[in-house]
Simulated scan of single mutants.
Amino acid sequence: MLLADDEAMVRAGVRAILDTDDAIEVVAEAADGVEAIDAVRHHRPDVAVLDIRMPRMDGLAAAAEIRSSVPETAVVILTTFSEDAYIARALGDGASGFLLKSGDPRELIAGVKAVADGAAYLSPRIAKRVIAELSSGPGGGIMARAAAAKERVSVLSPRELEVLALLGDGLTNNVIAERLFLVEGTVKAYVSAIFLRLDVTNRVQAAILAREAGLTTT
């Protein structure tokens, strides 16, 4: 994975946490968004962990560029800033995870592993904010959103709905494949088709839609 933060001390601390898990290897570090993009293009890591406020290019802009140019690399935002605008922009630009530096170190390891496996991960504090946002505000009532979500997913085939439901439960592609007795490549094709037909850009957005439509079991 790649780790990008403009503060060397922070990078060292985050790396120390990640190094406690033998399944995670930090292959490169970067001090700004431009370096992060270059490193991702060179190393092609499974995951890029990015701070938001960095010189030359911030983490949100870097995340959007990485997801566009190297889509196989999942992006996790790790930051001290939890403003709604940052969360919305990060998820809208395709980030698969949003974690707070003030959170439990175990959340960082769990989040990196989750997005590496093709799932999405939000820190508990961020998840609560997202859920609250989905259930409030103009046009944001639970019933209204459920009706709109059901209308959107009605364009999917029965098999696509099955895949979307399991995606909404937070399952990775390989687990979905096992559940539905499919090969993982077929599941990836279904996920790509679902993203296209629902006009979403990442698993977080698809999972939220699945939950709003009442497809999930957890």
Rank of each mutant, 00 (worst) to 15 (best):
G118C: 10
R211H: 14
T172S: 15
D46P: 06
A206R: 04
L78S: 02
A16C: 08
V130P: 01
R179W: 13
A88Y: 07
F81E: 14
I126Q: 05
A64V: 07
R11L: 10
N174I: 15
G170W: 00
I109A: 00
S123M: 03
E83Y: 12
D169A: 10
L167Y: 01
P105D: 06
V115E: 02
A95C: 04
D104C: 11
T20D: 14
D117T: 11
R41P: 09
E151V: 07
E178I: 09
A127S: 12
L50P: 00
D169L: 07
G92E: 04
D32V: 05
K113D: 05
L50E: 02
T20W: 12
L2K: 01
A193G: 12
D5F: 04
G141C: 05
V153Y: 01
L180G: 09
D5K: 05
A30N: 07
A88V: 08
G139T: 11
I66V: 12
E83Q: 14
D46F: 09
I52R: 00
L3E: 09
L209F: 07
E72K: 13
L99Q: 00
V76G: 03
V115Y: 02
E29L: 11
A12R: 15
D104A: 11
D169M: 03
Y86I: 11
L18R: 07
S96T: 05
S123N: 01
S102H: 13
F98K: 00
D19M: 15
A213W: 04
E133A: 15
V27T: 12
P158G: 05
L78C: 03
A62P: 04
N202I: 08
L108P: 02
A4Y: 02
L182D: 02
V27F: 10
M57S: 04
K150Q: 14
I66D: 01
P124V: 06
A213I: 00
